[in-house]
Amino acid sequence: MTVKKIGLGLLALAATILMAPAASAQDMYAGKVGFAKNCSACHQLTGLGIKGAFPALSGSPIAQGPEDVMISLVLQGRGGMPSFKGAIPEQTLADILTYVRGSWANHASEVSPEQIMSIKQALSEVDQRPKGN
């Protein structure tokens, strides 16, 4: 490898560091992993969903809207989406939501575990146990 190439590599590295978002309280990598595990079956790894079946998150007004609306939706579920209230710990959910709000075509604020906790507490304690037929 030539010196020139190493220099270019360093420049690219520097550029990557400079272009990274300001120090994030939530872990984008953990968010990506959590998204793949919990959300990708429907919304797809691309965040584009499947037309007519699963809504796209990329460019979605809800995914870029007020944090509390999005948090409540994921905690309570809606339509074809289940409640994730008991399924994902607050920190992981904060990572996932932050990842969704900052990935693909999205540029929205982060979500903190504290916000999730406060909304969780406000929700009713009635937790329906899933029932098989």
Partner: peptide, 11 residues
């Protein structure tokens, strides 16, 4: 499996 667990396993 159901609901969130089904979302996870089907992922």
């Amino acid at each position: 499996v159901f609901q969130a667990t089904a979302a996870q396993l089907s992922g």
